[in-house]
C-alpha cells in the first residue's frame, strides 16, 4: 500500500540514527531497540503529520520523546551515570591487517572510550544536544524542533555541554602524557 511504501522510503532509512540517539539516551541496547520499535510504530500511526521530505528530525523527535518518557518512568538519575557494560574498559581484540600499528589501534580505541565516557557523563538533556548536533549533524533549528525548546536554549545547552566535555577530555589528555 502507498502509505507503507512512502514510510519505507522516507522514514525507515533513519533507523540507525534512531538507534544511535536512543542508545546514547538509555544506554542499554535492548531497551534502546524496544523504544525505537515503539517510536517507529507511533511514527507510522501519525505519518500523516509529516509535512516534509526530510523525516529525520520528525522521527528523532518521536524517538527522544519515547526515550525521555521511559527515563522519567524509570526515574533514572542523570548523574552519576551507569556505563553500558558494552562500553566497559576492556578493549576488544584487534583484527589483523588493520593498516595501522597495534599501538596506534589501541590509542584509537582508548580515545574512543574516553570520548564515549565523557559524553555519557553528561546529563541526558545535555547529552542529547551533543548527539543531535555532532553525531547526527542537525541544525540548531532542527534540534530546537526535536527537543521543543527555543533556538537560544539549544545554543546555551550545547555551549554548556561542550564546556563540560572540554574539561573532561582535557583532564584525560593532561594525565595521559606518558603515551
Amino acid at each position: 500500500m502507498a502509505r507503507m511504501q512512502d514510510f519505507d522510503r522516507l522514514v525507515l532509512p533513519h533507523l540507525h540514527a534512531a538507534v544511535n540517539l536512543a542508545r546514547w539516551l538509555v544506554h542499554d541496547s535492548q531497551t534502546a531497540e524496544d523504544l525505537v520499535q515503539d517510536a517507529f510504530l507511533r511514527a507510522f500511526r501519525y505519518f500523516d503529520r509529516l509535512h516534509s521530505n526530510d523525516a529525520k528530525p520528525w522521527l528523532l523527535g518521536i524517538v527522544r520523546n519515547t526515550c525521555f518518557t521511559w527515563l522519567e518512568e524509570r526515574r533514572a538519575n542523570p548523574a552519576p551515570v551507569e556505563l553500558d557494560p558494552e562500553m566497559a574498559e576492556s578493549l576488544p581484540a584487534p583484527a589483523d591487517g588493520l593498516g595501522i600499528s597495534p599501538e596506534a589501534w589501541v590509542d584509537k580505541e582508548r580515545l574512543r572510550q574516553r570520548v564515549d565516557e565523557a559524553i555519557t557523563a553528561l546529563a541526558p538533556l545535555f547529552r542529547e544536544v551533543v548527539v543531535l548536533r555532532e553525531l547526527e549533524d542537525l541544525s540548531y533549528a532542527e534540534i530546537a524542533k526535536i527537543v521543543d525548546i527555543p533556538i537560544g536554549t539549544v545554543m546555551s545547552r550545547l555551549s554548556r555541554a561542550r564546556r563540560e566535555l572540554r574539561k573532561t577530555l582535557t583532564d584525560f589528555r593532561s594525565t595521559d602524557c606518558d603515551g
Binding site: H16, S29, A32, V36, Q37, E134, L135, L165
Partner: peptide, 26 residues
C-alpha cells in the same frame, strides 16, 4: 572538540533483527 567528538564517539546502529521486527509490526 567538535572534530574529536565527531571522529571518535561511537555511532550505534540497529542490530540485524530490528528492521525486520519493525517491518513485521508495521
Amino acid at each position: 572538540l567538535s572534530r574529536l567528538v565527531r571522529d571518535r564517539a561511537t555511532r550505534y546502529r540497529a542490530g540485524p533483527a530490528l528492521e525486520s521486527s519493525i517491518r513485521a509490526e508495521l
